[in-house]
Design a protein around this nucleic acid. Structure first.
Length: 421
DNA sequence: TAATGCGCACGTC
DNA sequence: GACGTGCGCATTA
């Protein structure tokens, strides 16, 4: 069975349990998957873990127990409100931090599965903790509010609102979360933040506020940070933050940041982007991206299938650059960049490649939707405006940007390339 | 007996 | 008041 199959099974199971008003915990998920599909619990558990790392599934500590959430759904939901109640969100963020502890314990909605869990279920779930490993890596980013700027936000928005955001974020900054003792979130205390633990220090140094920073950060952070964020927004505003998604990376902080940002402005997209998730980042590809970014130089972002593009790669301004442009509105550059890279490759892009691309482009949350819908390069070429706007169940704002700035561009580029060839 | 349905309470916004 | 979550109990297969 392909992973995608498991993804589908697991997500269906989670949705099913939720609709049934039953806690989507590991036991129930494994049981249902086995009953429905005959899959061994061990395997299911392993696949679930992968999904958590990809952030397709969020592992949260809710009311003292571990629950799993369909990241895509969570995000979406939350978003609405978030958008609407930005201010509230802001408050929330600030408050949250202040009250992390509270959250943690109880019932705060999403506590990241953290230590608590560990304590609780160390064994089983712990498997999930593996994510945590990831966290370690990703965690760094989040750390303080700084991350805030994290990639997540849409660049544009982010840039625009950065300042404001920051302000907000700062306070919130995970610092609270991060609180010294990393793990500090002490279980007892209640913080559930696994993520926190890991949240190390944010790598980046770029001031969130500066658009530039954003641009750079984006990816850098986003990979680390974003993951978490994305969800949160969705999840709950509330503790979403806390909720750490363990996906390893999850950095609650990041989330908060995003949230904050959102609040600040309309960060809607940003939130989206950042928040949303970056599926793979944390897990795999991200690394690449990160590396690129980290190097400072822009390398061509590794587009999905490198194989294809060899020649093109070359000097292409890195993807990051492209991103920046986008943010800044620089469409042309972006286009050109993609063009070069994309070219023939597009047909060879896998679902993961497509998802990675959008995550890298600042739409981690929406990337999940592409993944969920199993959009690969070929499908991408066939997508129409309506497909993007309504077929992916993503918010209109990001959808429009994705279509106009990416899908359309990629398609155009692809076909132009074909002609040239 | 396990799976499912759902009323209700709780927390947050 | 709206919404998300999930416990706990009743019902169904």
């Amino acid at each position: 069975m392909s992973e995608s199959k498991y993804r589908e099974w697991i997500l269906d199971t989670i949705d099913s349990l939720r609709s049934r008003k039953a806690r989507p915990d590991l036991e129930r998920i494994c049981r249902m998957v086995r009953r429905r599909h005959g899959s061994e619990p061990d395997r299911t558990s392993a696949e679930l873990e992968k999904l958590i790392q990809e952030q397709t599934v969020l592992k949260v500590n809710y009311k003292g127990s571990i629950s799993y959430r369909n990241a895509a759904k969570v995000q979406r939901r939350s978003r609405k409100k978030d958008d609407v109640t930005l201010t509230a969100a802001a408050r929330r963020s600030t408050v949250e931090e202040a009250s992390h502890s509270d959250l943690s314990n109880g019932d705060s909605a999403f506590g990241p599965v953290d230590q608590d869990e560990e304590d609780l279920e160390a064994d089983t779930s712990m498997a999930m903790d593996t994510d945590s490993n990831a966290d370690e890596e990703g965690a760094e980013e989040s750390r303080d509010g700084q991350d805030g700027p994290s990639p997540g936000h849409t660049f544009e928005d982010a840039a625009m609102h950065c300042s404001s955001v920051r302000a907000v974020s700062a306070p919130c900054s995970p610092s609270g979360t991060r609180p010294g003792p990393g793990p500090g979130c002490s279980p007892g205390s209640g913080l559930d933040c696994v993520s926190f633990q890991k949240v190390g220090e944010r790598p980046s140094s770029l001031p969130p506020s500066s658009p530039r920073a954003l641009a750079h950060n984006d990816w850098a952070y986003h990979s680390a940070v974003c993951p978490v964020e994305r969800q949160h927004p969705g999840m709950q505003r509330d503790k979403a933050v806390n909720a750490v998604i363990q996906s390893g990376t999850s950095s609650p902080v990041a989330l908060k940041n995003n949230m904050k940002k959102e609040e600040g402005g309309k960060v809607e997209d940003s939130s989206l982007s950042s928040d949303q998730l970056v599926p793979d980042y944390a897990a795999g590809q991200p690394e690449e991206m990160k590396n690129n970014v980290s190097d400072g130089r822009s390398q061509p972002l590794s587009l999905p299938s490198d194989n294809c593009t060899l020649k093109n790669k070359v000097d292409i301004p890195s993807f990051t650059a492209a991103s920046d442009n986008l943010l800044n509105g620089g469409k042309d550059d972006e286009v050109s960049v993609k063009k070069e890279k994309v070219g023939q490759n597009l047909l060879q892009w896998t679902v993961a490649d497509v998802a990675s691309y959008f995550s890298a482009a600042g739409f981690p949350e929406q990337a999940v939707a592409f993944r969920t819908q199993e959009i690969d390069g070929k499908s991408l070429l066939l997508m129409q405006r309506s497909d993007v706007l309504t077929g992916l169940s993503i918010r209109l704002g990001p959808a429009l940007k994705i279509y106009e700035r990416h899908v359309k561009v990629l398609q155009r580029t692809h076909f132009l390339e074909c002609e040239d060839l």
